[in-house]
Amino acid sequence: MRPFQYIRAPSLSETSKLTAGEDALAIAGGTNLLDLMKLQVETPALLADINRLGFSEIEDTDDGGLRLGALATNTETAVHPRVRADYPVLARAILAGATQQLRNKATNGGNLCQRTRCFYFTNIDQPCNKREPGSGCGAIDGIAKLHAVLGTSDQCIATYPGDMAVALSALGAVVQISGDKGERSVPVRDFHLLPGDTPWIENVLEAGEIITGIILPAPVGGTQIYRKVRERSSYAFALVSVAAIIELTDGKFSRADLAFGGLAHKPWHDPRVEEVLLGQHPSDALIDKAADILLEDARGYGENDFKIPLTRRTLRAVLTQATEDAA
């Protein structure tokens, strides 16, 4: 690990000043950041420890929703009585990720900011446009089994690796951000960015900004499912995952909030998929039509070609299960 200056951030405003510089980073749980610092993928000159700043509470909002403090751990969130009762898709998504030891340390804010696990990104001897702009992408025509099939660019085909944010996308959650210019709120669906020509810019956070909380809207009815397909039964990243909140009224889809993990540089949400389902009776033909729309622009890179049919089948499995649960 390269030497760095360690400062315990005394306040939120001081954190903004400390982390406004290019070589400065905030550290919370640190489970991803310290791993990357050991690999010298991250080499900050200054680390601002924000763990004692507060905003670790999980509390009811005035409109019946729930505010998850950015510094609440993944475990504290998954085991919270209201998360378990009202947002089971979120509890299930968190519990499907990492290990208990990691979830005990990882925070909600840090989880949103975690970096891709692309092998070329984490190996400093390999080319990677995300880590070293202009060096090329090793994954295109390389080892690309875990890589993206939607929203890729000729610069980067990495995936956003997390599970929690996929559920937050389906739930329509909002990220609260604080910086030296004040506070702002960004929907989770808009928080992460596609790689385009700037794969090193992964989310909308600007220098000096940190996440302070995540707002869950008031709970809705229906069946909530998080289905994660992976290569072993525990402690593996998603090949494909589906977060679903499904409601049927008079036998027709009246709610079909869907988000997908493992497919892109961000949790994937496509409103056209929901539109084609709403107001219709569930059927194999309808689900196929939804999958056609979802995967219209999907592109495999050899090793990850399987993700395209796997996504279709996982979507079918989730919608079939949700329909049966609702019946």
Partner: peptide, 13 residues
């Protein structure tokens, strides 16, 4: 009281 990986955290924290 909570189990964690001691390799992925700084003593200073």
């Amino acid at each position: 009281g909570i189990r964690i990986n001691s390799c992925l955290t700084l003593a200073a924290m």
